[in-house]
Design a protein around this nucleic acid. Structure first.
Length: 281
DNA sequence: CACCAGGTGGAAC
DNA sequence: GTTCCACATGGT
């Protein structure tokens, strides 16, 4: 895998087992949208536009192209998904997972920033993905610093900015009953009651337990934060879609604590398959 | 106009 | 310990 710099973009090639579309439409990330022949959005406070002109080429446009290593890590292009998928297939050893693996081939679990994931999944509760994206866009537009590389995109708001805005201000941006939860999380981090860097060094059980001390963070939100924001691939979040999949394909019972070190990735295949094909199979 | 959305806190058994 | 229900809002 090499990085080749051109005038105005960079190509990373050759890559295998990566689908730009599936990675950004599988429901793990709320800040990227289809733009032209690819997907664009903001991560790490920087605007970036990706395209995949051939299955084995990832293209990065604009200012972001100068930092290919950052995006390789963000997109998990340095991770051996072939081995992970084999582990999942062997461990589950069932038709539904085989179908989900095939359907979701190319999904990568992004390495997103902890605070953005925590806040985003607080917003996700009792909500749909379309509106989650709108709320996050509104928060970012109102409070986020201008994103590097774009004059119309903004970084995700810091905990400090949300704390200063207050519950009423957060409510006014369309967050609904979740405003007080977002405020509590922002407050605890701003005050240093919760230290995200320290949490990143804790074991997964402690991490989830600590996250659950925030009002509005329960097991599901904490699990998503651990998986998407802290790289804990062994965590298996159960939401309504995964619940549905378990009910329909696993007799309503699945021991989520013994699904191996890539349980969370398996969960994403099931989630994506159920949400896209739900009811049909 | 009901019902649902990547749930959770709190009250009532 | 489990079970029920409100919660803001926008989309079918």
């Amino acid at each position: 895998m090499n990085v080749i710099q051109y005038d105005g973009y960079a190509d990373i090639a050759p890559i295998t087992g990566f689908s730009l579309r599936k990675t950004f439409t599988c429901g793990q990330c709320f800040r990227f949208d289809e733009e032209g022949d690819g997907y664009s959005g903001v991560a790490f406070g920087r605007y970036v536009r990706f395209a995949q002109p051939a299955p084995d080429i990832l293209r990065i446009y604009g200012e972001a192209a100068s930092d290919a290593d950052l995006w390789i890590k963000y997109l998990a292009l340095d991770v051996d998904y072939e081995a992970i998928r084999l582990d999942i297939a062997r461990r589950f050893d069932c038709e539904i997972m085989d179908r989900a693996l095939e359907y979701g081939e190319g999904i990568r679990i992004l390495r997103q920033q902890p605070w953005e994931v925590i806040c985003s999944f607080i917003i996700s509760q009792n909500n749909n993905i379309g509106r989650i994206k709108k709320i996050i866009a509104a928060l970012s537009r109102a409070l986020g610093e201008p994103a590097a590389g774009s004059d119309r995109h903004h970084a995700f708001p810091t905990p400090e900015a949300l704390f200063k805005l207050g519950t009423e201000g957060i409510f006014a941006l369309g967050t609904g009953f979740r405003a007080k939860y977002i405020y509590d999380a922002a407050n605890r981090i701003t005050e240093g009651i919760i230290d995200l860097n320290a949490l990143a060094a804790q074991d997964t059980r402690t991490l989830i337990k600590e996250l659950c001390t925030v009002k509005g963070i329960g097991l599901k939100v904490a699990s998503c934060a651990a998986l998407f924001g802290f790289g804990r691939t062994e965590v298996f979040p159960v939401d309504v879609w995964v619940r549905r999949s378990i009910d329909r394909h696993f007799g309503g019972k699945l021991d989520i604590d013994s699904l191996g070190e890539y349980a969370g990735i398996a969960q994403q295949y099931l989630f994506y398959y159920e949400r896209e094909n739900g009811g049909r199979t």
